[in-house]
Amino acid sequence: MNIFRFLGDLSHLVSIWLLLHKMTTSKSCTGISFKTQALYALVFATRYLDLLYGSWHSMYNVAMKIFFIGSSLYILYLIKVPFKPTRDPAIDTFKLEYLVGGALIMSLIANYEYSFPEILWSFSIWLEAVAILPQLFIIQRTGEAENITTHYVAALGAYRGLYIPNWLYRYFAEGFFDPIAVIAGIIQTVIYLDFFYIYFTKVLKGQKFELP
């Protein structure tokens, strides 16, 4: 564990807290992509259910995995049950087939071993890299976003962004190098760059997140 990875994980926790805060205080999921949330639930299920076959690294690791699986299911429940009337499916139209299909193909090409657990792990990594796209698509379509929603997306982007200095640190300090995680992680971070540009130039200067 190093400071970058710890801050990244912390940022991930903050993002989930922001999302839950937005939904429970406004009693709505307006502007939130159910599709992105469903993809994250799938990402966590395919990566973290390695708990079931004994992949226990530390209490920290196990507790985080359980939290991410549990909170993602709870978020899906909130969107689908109590806040269902506030969701507009007509703007959440990104085609999931392409993302899931692409991640599946990548997991068969790029994995560390042709075994079920390793392919599942690789699938979850590639799927996570693109899971935010339906959410960014909603923001692009509507041309704006509530500030709290942009803080959520920013915290999520910071999470994977912070993993990059973590990988640099681990490469030099520990000789650890995980090329699949690194390449997918860089792709994931690049996907956020456009968003971050507007977030830093507008939202953090007190303006509303609006596309030109």
Binding site: N61, K65, E118, W121, F177
Partner: peptide, 10 residues
């Protein structure tokens, strides 16, 4: 066998 990282990251 495997060059797999230990997958100790989240």
């Amino acid at each position: 066998s495997t060059m797999s990282a230990d997958h100790d990251e989240l």
